[in-house]
Design a protein around this nucleic acid. Structure first.
Length: 423
RNA sequence: GGAGAGAUGGCCGAGUAGGCUGAAGGCGCUCGCCUGCUAAGCGAGUAUACGGCUAGUAACUGUAUCGAGGGUUCGAAUCCCUCUCUCUCCGCCA
């Protein structure tokens, strides 16, 4: 959520920033409702002031045995008026809230302006795509051929966009989770968290999935509970409605969770393989930091995610997303894209974002500065460290051999019981 | 699933025949004093949100907030209703 006072003070700037995000005309109603709200507030508060004083007076008079009927009657009427005004105010506030909850974060000044991913900015490239001396296969062929991915039976169980991992494939998935977690816990200093995979509505609003993107979520029938679309949701919301001490910051947290996405509106995209699934595994990184530090924390978080790909010796590049390609809650996002031979291009495998105080404001996560200034919102960051299914795909494709077998990256072998090759 | 208890400020914890309690007391924290150092001691201070007024995120001022929402009342942390959560016992279960 944006700071309403800031929007009120500089609507033109906000308008421009929103236009860069392809969001137009969302502010018109806000300004009108906002001033209406303040007019109503002043009126209601004045009457409440009268009521407070008058009802106290009534108490005094009653104690002294005086007749206070007239005053009582006036207060009664004031109470009626207050009820009406409060009613109006809460309607107006509901409208304002609705607008505010649907406004995306504003892009940072360092973000390239552009309508879509075409405007993304290449930041750096690591490693080089391998030159195959044979025709490389796609992971959706490699996996089934090795008997480690079973798409057909997954469809029988759950439909499209699900995969069954079996045998060494299942172990590969599990090994990657453990490798990623170990790197972030023991090398990068993140606290390991194992959160619930279902969360309530407040959490989903807190990180920005709701109310705008309800159709992307899996909701539990008959309950206000949602399957987590990313561990970012439970991790960030761990401190919802809390006031932290500055000495408790920064907080670095990492978690493995399954992630569940309805993928509404992505029909026909990435239909083959494990790239776009309704359920996938991910190790997520989340940071809560002081505002002064958030941009440098974004850099280190991105490097933390890169470490995983470097350890696996997978070629990737880092891209700074343009204003038109960023997620709703983010002010600045780096994507990590891993080389995928089947696509003959780099595919997103991690997304690292600085959300500034946007989520903190929604989730009401604040901290008390050591210097005794007033309480402030923390800044929140999140990043994939990294998507596990896509890593499996990348390993299968980048490490495939002419005979159909797949070499296991060295760093992963201890997690695979020493196995150095599949097939 | 059955029975009962409870939700108050950063924490603990008072507060029911409804009124001057934003809220006693303690702890913690901050500042000052004291002190060879530390500790102890003494004094003062210490909620948040949204408004008004302002050059002002200063001061002043108003309103709201004692789990959430609604009701009764001139007036509710205190009475009534609904919901949520926590705890105890029983049952069931990985």
């Amino acid at each position: 959520m944006l700071d309403a006072k800031m929007v009120r003070a500089k609507p033109e700037l906000v308008e421009i920033a929103l236009r860069h995000r392809n969001q137009i005309g969302l502010l018109e109603n806000f300004l009108a409702l906002d001033s209406q709200r303040r007019i109503l507030l002043v009126e209601a508060e004045e009457i409440k002031k009268f009521r407070n004083q008058a009802s106290q007076e009534v108490g005094q008079q009653m104690k002294q045995g005086q007749n206070s009927e007239k005053l009582v009657e006036r207060v009664r009427q004031a109470g009626q008026k207050i009820k009406e005004l409060d009613q109006k105010i809460s309607e107006v506030e509901a409208n304002i809230e609705n607008i505010m909850l649907n406004l995306p974060n504003l892009p940072d000044a360092s973000v390239p302006v552009g309508p879509n991913e075409e405007s993304n900015q290449l930041v750096r490239v690591w490693g080089e795509p391998r030159q195959f001396e044979f025709e490389p296969q796609a992971h959706w062929d490699i996996g089934p051929n090795l008997g480690i991915l079973d798409f057909e039976r997954a469809a029988k169980l759950s439909g499209a966009r699900f995969t069954v991992y079996r045998g060494v494939g299942a172990r590969l998935e599990r090994a990657l989770v453990n490798l990623f977690l170990d790197i972030h816990i023991y090398e990068h200093g993140y606290e390991e968290i194992f959160p619930p995979f279902m969360v309530n509505r407040e959490c989903m609003v807190g990180t920005g999935q709701l109310p705008k993107f309800a159709e992307d979520m899996f909701k539990i029938e008959g309950r206000e509970m949602y399957l987590v679309p990313t561990a970012e949701v439970p991790l960030t919301n761990l401190y919802r409605e809390e006031i932290l001490d500055e000495k408790d910051l920064p907080r670095y947290m990492t978690a493995y969770t399954a992630c569940f996405r309805a993928e509404a509106g992505s029909h026909g995209r990435d239909t083959r393989g494990v790239i776009r699934q309704h359920q996938f595994n991910k190790v997520e990184l989340v940071k809560l930091v002081t505002p002064e530090k958030s941009f440098e924390e974004l850099e280190t978080m991105t490097h933390n995610a890169e470490t995983v790909l470097q350890r696996l010796e997978l070629p990737y590049r880092v891209v700074l997303l343009s204003t038109g390609d960023m997620g709703f809650s983010s002010a600045k996002t780096y994507d990590l894209e891993v080389w995928m031979p089947s696509y003959n291009e780099y595919k997103e495998i991690s997304s690292c974002s600085n959300c500034l105080d946007f989520q903190a404001r929604r989730a009401n996560i604040r901290y008390r500065p050591a210097s005794k200034e007033r309480i402030r919102y923390v800044h929140t960051l999140n990043g994939s460290g990294v998507a596990v299914g896509r890593t499996v795909a990348a390993i299968l494709e980048n490490y495939q051999q002419r005979d159909g077998s797949v070499v296991i990256p060295t760093a992963l072998r201890p997690y695979m019981g020493g196995l150095d090759r599949i097939g």
